[in-house]
Simulated scan of single mutants.
Amino acid sequence: MKLLLHVCCAPDLTISYKRLIEQNINPTLYFYNPNIHPIDEYKKRLNEVIKLKKIWYLENIEAEYKQKEFFNAINKNLNNNRCYECIKLRLKKSAEIAKKNNFENFSTTLFASPRKNHDMIKSIGEKIAKDFELNFMYFNFRANDGVKEAAKLCRNMNIYRQTYCGCSYSIFEAKKLEKISKEEKYNNLVENIGEKNANMYFKNFKKDVLKIPQDIPYSVIKDNINILKNFKPRIILIKKEIAQEFNIVKSGRIKLKDWKGKFIVW
């Protein structure tokens, strides 16, 4: 089956492609996202898609980056929400390209995004498809732990994972949410280890490699290792003798109560 697949980003493409191949569908990619801001971020995301395209030997139809098209779309339709108009713009352009290149079917990797509304995307896609006499295909790429599997694929393939949706508005929203999250983590630490210790060690928030006991001493976590989740580290480097206190015997992703972290035991 020929399918034009609108690609919003490489992380969502990973699981989308995997699920399509399982159904014997080999898509042609179309990365059309004038919403992405700034242009350096756009280039970074595009390059990650190109990376996957080369790995999987996929066909690709190039799209121009015209950010004015995004702002024109949302400014002309102020009665609708911004995200609705953004998705409508991208799917309509995808339908135009599908029609032009003799595709009968089109879809989008937006169905893999963890926070997107499937009903809204499906409704928009089907209305557009009717106008262009095409078939808009719905796939629940998030099903069966699709989001977790996409994250794993990104780690294994060294794919950049963005921290905000794409537009300038979402940058502001992401920063606002990050500030709220940081305050929440700090308050949790104050509640668990006291304000003095929280102030002393919270400088390690979101540190790539959090070292135990160099950065956080054993005395801070001895009663509750889950305290570490408030620092949001990528990797925890933990001394063997300390790891044994928590029944951690080898390196790997380890679940402790309601939290899972990547530990390297040394």
Rank of each mutant, 00 (worst) to 15 (best):
P38A: 05
L78S: 08
L4N: 09
S219Q: 13
E173L: 06
A95W: 06
K240M: 06
S16D: 00
C154A: 15
N156D: 15
F172I: 05
I128Q: 07
P233F: 13
N247T: 02
I97D: 13
I87H: 14
P213S: 08
I238S: 12
N47P: 09
E195G: 04
S168I: 05
K222F: 04
I124L: 12
V147A: 08
E195M: 11
E178N: 12
N80R: 14
R142C: 05
K54I: 10
I25Q: 11
Y164W: 11
L91A: 02
N102H: 15
K196L: 12
I61R: 12
E59P: 02
F202M: 08
C83W: 02
A98R: 09
C86H: 05
N60H: 12
I15A: 10
E149A: 04
V249W: 09
I180C: 01
T108R: 01
V147L: 03
V265T: 04
K116Y: 07
K130D: 15
Q244F: 04
K53C: 08
K182P: 06
I248L: 09
N158P: 03
P217I: 06
S181H: 04
E149F: 14
I39C: 05
I121M: 13
I235M: 12
I55R: 11
I238R: 12
F141Q: 00
Q23F: 00
L210P: 02
I216L: 06
K206D: 06
A151E: 15
H37N: 06
C83V: 06
K43G: 03
N81M: 00
D215Y: 12
L256N: 10
S219W: 01
L3N: 14
D145Q: 13
I39M: 10
A198H: 07
K207Q: 07
L46T: 01
P217E: 13
W56A: 04
R142T: 03
M137F: 10
Y17D: 00
K185R: 14
C167L: 02
I74N: 05
I21C: 06
I225G: 08
N187C: 03
I193W: 07
S113D: 02
A143D: 14
N75Y: 06
E62P: 08
I124F: 11
L237H: 11
D145M: 07
K2Q: 13
P11L: 05
P213K: 10
G125Q: 10
L110R: 00
F70R: 05
M1D: 10
S94V: 06
L20N: 00
A243I: 01
E178D: 12
E96V: 06
N47E: 15
M137S: 14
N75R: 07
K211A: 04
Q162K: 01
D208F: 07
E173N: 04
G125D: 08
I238T: 07
D215G: 13
Q23M: 09
K260I: 14
C86E: 08
D223K: 11
E178Y: 04
